[in-house]
Simulated assay, not measured.
Amino acid sequence: MIKFKSILMMLITSIGLSGAAVAMGNYATAHAASTDNVYDLSEWQGKLSDNKAKKLSSEVPFVILRVQYGTRHYDKTFNHNKAMIEKYGVPYGVYSYSRYTSKSSAASEARDLYYRAPNAKFYVNDFESTYLSRSAARAATLQWVQTLRPLVGNKKILFYSYQSFMKAYAKSALSAYDGYWLAAYTKHEPSVSHVLWQYTDRYYSAALNKKVDASKMRTDQSWFIGDVATPSSNNNITAVSTPTEPTQTTTSTSTTDSNNTTSGIPAIQNMDKTMTISSNATQNIYGDNQATLPVDTTINYQGMQVAVVAQSKYNGKTYYLATSIYSGNRIGWIASDAFNK
């Protein structure tokens, strides 16, 4: 899904790697675009123009946009490309190239993906490399989907990887996902159950006038982008997090354990705007791992701009969930009085 794959392809051709190379063989398609071909796009493919986005609307049933590389790198083209395809009515799902190193970082990456793309039709965990042990990777991969599930309701959540990696590092967690997006650049389609098959990174898109990653749907289009129910606020898995004051106890919430849902949390309203923090503001930043665990940090922001992705109210005070507009790094929940109005 990223430039890494093109580099890997060259390595495979020159030195004949084993393992992942078996699945990443050089197989390109030459036939014309068809309605079951889906493209995944990131900053490596550049920004969409009006003309390209318009042509995409008749070339593909939907696209899948990269939102982030881990949580620290926010895809440089996501906001622009999202606006373009929304303008021309192209449905889209989103994916996060996962870099989590623990259950807690997996949860953070999942939450970031949702808050950065709350209107996506479906969500994908692209997990294809790790330094974790197999058991730790499986636990973190399960935590990723468990964290995202209460946020997205009945929207589909997919797992993406090549088959050997999935079996080694995510197999036991796979059943918690709605479907498997298989990466296998092979001439013959693997028999493992999957809903999408990414079979090449060299499919020529007439709309984009370049070669791109392409996948074939193995279930109906409506399964991916059909009508979905409103997310439930009471699921027995990790809760949507909210800001709290460091000196107060959250009396309106009840937590069964550290991994289960916190009920009675304030409503979160999705946003998509840029705001400037007051030049002299010194404000506490509140974390969102659990409703009762604030981040013990105070920062002088010195007039920086941030992307605001959500807002919530707690005890009559408004808080904004802010991320860096440059790196995509999560800053945290910040009180409204820190911002220039």
Rank of each mutant, 00 (worst) to 15 (best):
T256R: 08
V60E: 01
G328I: 04
A137L: 07
Y160H: 11
S263L: 14
A335L: 13
T255R: 11
G226N: 02
F78S: 00
L41A: 06
Q302I: 00
L11V: 12
V124D: 01
L41W: 10
A110G: 04
Y185R: 06
T298D: 07
V295G: 04
H31V: 13
Y204K: 01
D288V: 03
N259V: 11
P243N: 05
R111W: 01
S312E: 01
N26Y: 14
Q221E: 12
K55G: 00
T282P: 02
I285M: 05
T77D: 07
M217I: 07
T255P: 02
A170G: 06
T261H: 15
M84W: 03
L321E: 03
S222E: 12
G89Y: 00
A33L: 14
K54R: 09
I85T: 01
Q302G: 03
D126R: 08
A173N: 07
G70I: 14
V90C: 04
M275F: 03
S312V: 08
F122Y: 12
S14H: 10
T247I: 11
S108C: 07
H80C: 08
S161K: 07
M304T: 09
E59L: 04
T323F: 15
Y326E: 07
T251N: 09
I15P: 00
A291V: 06
A335R: 02
S42V: 06
M271H: 08
K47R: 08
Q143F: 02
